[in-house]
Nucleic acid binder design. Structure first.
Lengths: 223, 223
DNA sequence: CCTCCTTGAGCCATTATTGAACCAATTTGG
DNA sequence: CCAAATTGGTTCAATAATGGCTCAAGGAGG
């Protein structure tokens, strides 16, 4: 028997909620019934339901039951939830808008030590023959470019995209799209970006980043 | 058995992590299970997991388990929380990146009825002399442009920005920057955007939106 | 020979789950 | 209107799972 049953129940409940299982009257079965159904103690179900209540998915009333919260489509939570369904094509389009701009900002705004940390990520990535390690430092390279763009909002948007890309539907796609040859290509393109940053040339940095993202897009979407 | 068993396990774990094996709930098996599976002592697994924890790939909690750092659901909340502190200057910079692109997309992708709904928002805004009413339809105009860009992710990013801009520090700023003269200016600029959309001219739409945002920026930041 | 890593074992501190009981608010049915 | 049933809220002790830590013995490589 695995542990952390509550977390698994949260996932299962989320699945059922989004599948519309209880959308009719918006009422969820009593905790005691759910406990029976999942074969766990009521306390465990209570913990799971509590988490869903905390993040605003459910509302509980003593003596009445537990209900789906009426979703405010303009709440931050709802917006982020909808973002989780973002398609790779849509996201690549936004990356092509934001990352070249971030590179351009970085060329003018970055401190020398920040640029060194970008170079460090680049070199570590190039030295990695192991795919997951390369992937990690590749992501780190892009992240550090955003970090020295000196626009905190831009940086956080990139964080958001990074989290979204770490959700399960993306894994298969990344796995399919990587190869040794492409790793070498990426290293060369990163080098061009880094060179432009070092030379403090915003336009060259923007251009180099755009070229790189077009390569990534081709590999990812097979265009 | 050669030495450096722990390093090999690090590589194997990285592989599995990047293949998405534990992406669903972000939890990796207990150290004791991994030790059994790899046929090594628990101490060795601990060393490997320790390395991955050190470089930020994993997070460990006594009594709970070991988790992928990137799928930590709190990290999404943390990102959004940090976004709430976004400065007007940073956001204007991003708006100037995204909204002209959205207008350009809209010029090519929008359906006729979508364009009509943009025009409707525009006309209602122009007819409003009351500041909160104008404000509402002004925001609605921009939102509808994003809505017909046919990029859901872009649309949600704009929703996010809209919510952030509706928080208190922004309210004062908007109130200060508003005047009858500016309202008329905005109406004219919106008209130019709408005309470009109606003529299905992406470049003109991008340009008109950029000009408008530069006006907004000047008024908002006093530059 | 010395150093570092692995092994296997044991114990600790923290956390999660269980099962139970009782309370408080609400609904249901007579 | 009242009583019973239903439902979430709270607490508690016992058990199990999990990472944190230490130690002694064995082994591989310099």
């Amino acid at each position: 028997m695995p542990r952390l049953v509550a977390a698994d129940i949260v996932i299962e409940l989320r699945k059922r909620i989004s599948s519309g299982e209880w959308a009719e009257n918006g009422r969820i079965p009593p905790e005691r019934d759910l406990a029976d159904e999942f074969g766990v103690a009521r306390n465990t179900v209570r913990r799971a339901v509590g988490l869903l209540e905390q993040d605003g998915t459910l509302v509980r009333h003593v003596g009445r039951g537990t209900f789906l919260a009426t979703v405010d489509p303009n709440s931050l939570g709802a917006v982020v939830a909808r973002m989780e369904g973002t398609s790779p094509a849509d996201m690549m389009e936004i990356r092509k808008l934001l990352e070249p701009a971030a590179a351009s900002f970085a060329a003018t705004n970055a401190s020398t030590s920040e640029l060194n940390s970008v170079r460090e990520a680049h070199e570590t990535a190039c030295d990695s023959t192991d795919m997951p390690v390369f992937e990690h430092w590749d992501a780190e390279f892009h992240h550090r470019v955003f970090a020295c763009s000196r626009n905190d909002f831009l940086k956080e948007i990139h964080n958001l995209m990074r989290i979204l890309r770490n959700q399960s539907p993306w894994f298969e796609m990344k796995k399919r799209s990587f190869s040794e040859e492409r790793r070498v290509t990426y290293c060369g393109e990163h080098q061009a970006i880094l060179d432009a940053l070092m030379q403090r040339d915003p336009d060259a940095a923007r251009q180099a980043m755009l070229i790189h993202l077009q390569t990534v897009e081709r590999n990812l979407l097979g265009r």
